[in-house]
Design a protein around this nucleic acid. Structure first.
Length: 511
RNA sequence: GGUCCGUUCGUCUAGGGGUUAGGACAUCAGAUUUUCAUUCUGGUAACACGGGUUCGAUUCCCGUACGGACUACCA
């Protein structure tokens, strides 16, 4: 079997869409599994859509996700350059070859003329409304013009494009690794522009030429390319590269979670989840978008989630490390239908990956949040906090978000609880509890429990009922980690102070 | 409009001519717990429709419907 060489080929027109990460991932998994090569090629043949910073963004996103590039932009390699704009002369050469062999031709039609053609065909209710075998002889091109007219126009600097001469009525077959055989009649394919009037190639030409030159073995890309795949087959044939033609695998699209259609930034914004891997500010509009990274998604969790959007191993295992993904992945097991993007599952994956970390690892997250808040904390204390909270976090920032009370004494108390439960009994109990607390040596759980029992005994109030008010006094909220652990972490003095403050500031419910 | 692709619980999906149609997320209920969460147990919930083929079809074929992609000198 041929050496596996795959490429991820985004264009730098903005932030990389999360679907792009999945495409890159599938390419990467195949490359790694087969001991092949992962190539990054930048498809920047549209100068109008170039966005500054987009290429760097792509690079950083892949790096964050852990998708390593073996060859390509930022990395170099035997087929450099890997930026299509830097390969410009190459495409010109191949386009000329096509013309010389009669497989392509010059076209001089203006935009207005093209528009007029489409209008005309539309009015005739022609099923064939394209620049192709049925219409090309009515247009202004090197097929209808004499050779001298053509060279005269070119020498005069008139704008032209180069179009592929698509044969009429031929069945073009394509064996897609995911969809099986796809057959299209060549008459439904138009004479696609190969070289634009600015001298740049279109995607179609650049993509085929580069995949050939870079010895790509598998083209793994989104389903939006499926309709033009037969055209690409035709190009390989025109070049005489059929034997070297890569295998195709067209991936199902990522769809929006509710309703129908392709997942878009708008939908993600509306539902309040990211769609880009990293934070991104569009330089044209200054619009800011939050990334998965900054939202607290772990790259390995995101990759696991993404891998399962359209692929599954056929077993009931759901948690796969990248290593396991590499081992189990296969193009044959990729689904044919689009997958709705369900952020809840992504959150679940994140939680699973977070929970699998050691408390020491988790401590780093808390410490970094604290650093941002300018709060200092001994590592031992941070460790205790993370230990107490690890079962109830989904994101790294949750340690701080849900654990602020460890550092900041509550000033407001959850009224839905205090209004119902904060009665004179509570005050009596907590008051007594303080005295008993003062007598204990340490704040170890068993000692606190003893203090609690003593309080219960001297007040004749069951301690069970008092736990919720105690929690309110210490944290301000009605839920959170184990109370004994909280008291232990807070320490005796702080605990007493907080209870005292609660007693003086929470209004007592009468009867 | 044309071309192409698709359709199993709300979602991601397994399965495949005869199954109680399996799992996971979400959801609901119960258990555990000082609360929440975790964990455990259980529940609700799906083969788009119509024709064939067949003893039998969710599975194969054909239609229809619905959805999607493409239809640029964008990728």
């Amino acid at each position: 079997m041929k050496e596996v060489r795959v490429r991820f080929a985004p264009s730098p027109t903005g932030a990389l869409h999360i679907g792009g990460i999945r495409t890159a991932l599938y390419n990467y998994l195949l490359a790694r599994q087969q001991g092949g090569t992962m190539i990054l090629r930048i498809e920047d043949t549209d100068q109008n859509r170039f966005v500054p910073g987009a290429e760097e963004y792509i690079l950083e996103s892949l790096q964050w996700a852990g998708i390593e590039i073996d060859e390509g932009v930022s990395k170099g390699g035997p087929h450099a350059p890997y930026r299509q704009s830097e390969r410009k002369p190459l495409y010109q050469k191949y386009a000329q070859q096509l013309i010389a062999e009669g497989n392509a031709y010059y076209a001089f039609d203006t935009e207005a003329e093209l528009e007029a053609m489409r209008e005309r065909l539309k009015h005739q209710h022609s099923s064939d409304q394209q620049y192709g075998s049925g219409t090309r002889m009515q247009m202004k091109n090197s097929l209808t013009l004499s050779a001298s007219e053509v060279s005269q126009k070119i020498n005069a600097g008139e704008q032209y494009v180069i179009r592929l001469k698509v044969p009429a009525n031929e069945e073009i077959k394509l064996n897609d690794l995911i969809r099986g055989e796809v057959q299209v009649n060549s008459s439904t394919i138009d004479d696609k522009v190969l070289m634009k009037s600015d001298g740049m190639p279109t995607y179609h030409l650049a993509n085929v030429v580069d995949d050939y030159l870079m010895k790509i073995s598998h083209v793994i890309r989104g389903e939006e390319w499926l309709p033009s795949a037969p055209l690409h087959v035709l190009l390989y044939r025109s070049f005489g590269w059929e034997k070297e033609m890569p295998r195709f695998a067209h991936l199902p699209l990522l769809l929006k979670a509710d309703g129908n259609g392709k997942l878009s930034k708008r939908d993600a914004d509306k539902a309040g989840f990211p769609i880009f891997p990293l934070n991104w500010t569009d330089p044209r509009t200054n619009e800011f978008s939050k990334g998965f990274r900054e939202s607290g998604y772990l790259p390995e969790a995101l990759l696991n989630f993404l891998a399962f959007l359209g692929w599954n191993p056929g077993t009931e295992q759901e948690i796969f490390s990248v290593k396991e993904l590499i081992h189990s992945f296969s193009l044959e097991r990729i689904a044919r239908h689009g997958a709705k993007f369900d952020i809840q599952k992504a959150q679940w994956y994140n939680q699973q990956y977070l929970k699998s970390k050691t408390s020491e690892e988790l401590t780093k997250y808390l410490l970094s949040s604290l650093a941002q808040e300018n709060i200092s904390c001994m590592p031992e204390k941070a460790l205790k906090i993370c230990d107490a909270m690890r079962e109830r976090v989904s994101f790294p920032q949750d340690f701080w978000e849900h654990g602020k009370f460890f550092f900041i004494a509550p000033s407001v108390f959850d009224q839905s609880v205090t209004s119902k439960k904060w009665n004179s009994e509570v005050v009596k109990f907590l008051d007594q509890f303080i005295s008993h607390l003062k007598t204990i040596e340490t704040t170890a759980a068993n000692e606190i429990k003893i203090a609690l029992e003593k309080t219960s005994h001297t007040t004749s109030i069951s301690s069970g009922k008092m736990m919720q008010p105690l929690r309110i006094a210490l944290t301000g909220g009605a839920s959170g980690p184990d109370l004994m652990a909280i008291i232990d972490i807070l320490g005796k003095e702080e605990t007493i102070q907080r209870i005292q403050y609660a007693i003086t500031s929470i209004p007592v419910k009468t009867t």
